[in-house]
Structure formats: C-alpha cells, structure tokens
C-alpha cells in the first residue's frame, strides 16, 4: 500500500494525479462517508457532501503543506462541508435550531436507507440534542473509533477537552436512553 507521503506527492504531480486520486477515493470514501452521514443523517445529503469534499480535496491538494496528516485534513474538510451544508439549509428554510432538528428526524425516518429500530432512532434523537462539539466528538470516538490524538488534530481541540466532551456526551446519551 502506498504511503501517505507518496500519495500526497503523486496527487500534487500532474502526471500522476488521476491515478493517485482514484487511490485516495478508494482508501477514504467509506470512512469519510460514515463521518458525514452521522452529521447530516440522510443518505442523499451525505452523498452530496461527500462528493463536494472529494472535489474540494482534489482542487486544493496543491496547497496542502503536510502540516497535518492527509487523513486529518480531509476529515476537517468533510466536517466543515457537512456543518456548512446543515447551516445553509437551516438558514434557507428559516428554521430555528429546534425546528431544524425536528425536520432532520422526520427526514431520517423517511430515509429508505435508515433501517434503525426504535432504540437506534431514539439514539439519533438523543445525539441531536447534544451541543455541536460533543456530537462530533461522540461520533468520532464511539463510531469512527478515532483516537483522541487524531480527533484533536481534526477539530483542533486539546485532548483533555475532548475527553471531557466525550464523557459528558456518553452520560447524557445513556441518561436519555434509560429514561425514555
């Protein structure tokens, strides 16, 4: 398997860019998809955001300086794209945060690519009530199984703060699921 350093070099070289991009998409598409999907919830939206993310990566790879890992950089782009997508939609529709969450839950229930049972739906409702940062940290730690060091690099937050956010999020979610 090609090293990250070589992959970046190939992506930044015109002659090898296409082949390297194919390798990049193949390597990271699923991880980025699931990360995005857990933010936007609905498959069609996740597909749009994922494609935008890869297009953005392709267009800006020339400016990538390698100060962080390629994976972290892409995750950051994906996170920003997903959050911007939600914010734009909310603004366009003129919804408050609560209304927007309710709409998202309704969309999730209508999504044919959500096969969750009552507990899984309840979990999504519970996650929706978390503050943005806690939501992201919980998904990245619990589902994406990223290390605190990786999350720290992506979200540019200290490991200590991330640990606190994660434990708070877990407590809240467990309490929500137990009481309802």
């Amino acid at each position: 398997m090609i090293s990250e350093k070589d992959l970046i070099k190939e992506l930044q070289t015109k002659a090898t860019r296409e082949k390297a991009f194919t390798a990049l998409v193949g390597t990271y598409q699923e991880r980025l998809y699931w990360h995005i999907r857990r933010i936007v919830l609905v498959h069609d939206d996740a597909d749009d955001v994922l494609q935008n993310t890869f297009i953005k990566v392709y267009r800006h790879i020339g400016n990538f300086k390698g100060e962080s890992k390629l994976f972290s950089w892409m995750y950051r782009i994906a996170t920003n794209e997903a959050l911007t997508f939600l914010a734009q939609r909310s603004k366009k529709m003129g919804f408050s945060d609560t209304e927007h969450q309710e709409r998202m839950m309704a969309s999730l229930q209508a999504d044919v690519y959500f096969e969750g049972d009552a507990i899984q739906l309840k979990l999504q409702q519970a996650i929706a009530t978390l503050p943005e940062k806690q939501k992201l940290v919980f998904n990245m730690k619990y589902y994406d199984e990223l290390k605190y060091g990786e999350i720290s690099e992506i979200l540019e937050t200290s490991v200590g703060a991330l640990k606190a956010s994660y434990h708070l999020a877990v407590k809240k979610l467990e309490a929500f699921l137990k009481e309802t």
Binding site: H43, F114, Y143, V170, K178
Partner: peptide, 28 residues
Amino acid sequence: KSVIPKNSGFTVPQGYFEELLGQLDERR
C-alpha cells in the same frame, strides 16, 4: 458496557461506493 447501540442503523444503496468514483469523474 453501555446502553448505546454500536450499530447506528444507517445503510447505503447497493453498489454506492463502487459507483462513487464514476460520479466524481463526471463532476470533475
């Protein structure tokens, strides 16, 4: 350890990841 289910219940259309690269090529 936790009551939080590990499976979130999300699925994707069949063959979605196989077709993604083609869709990206189309857009690029």
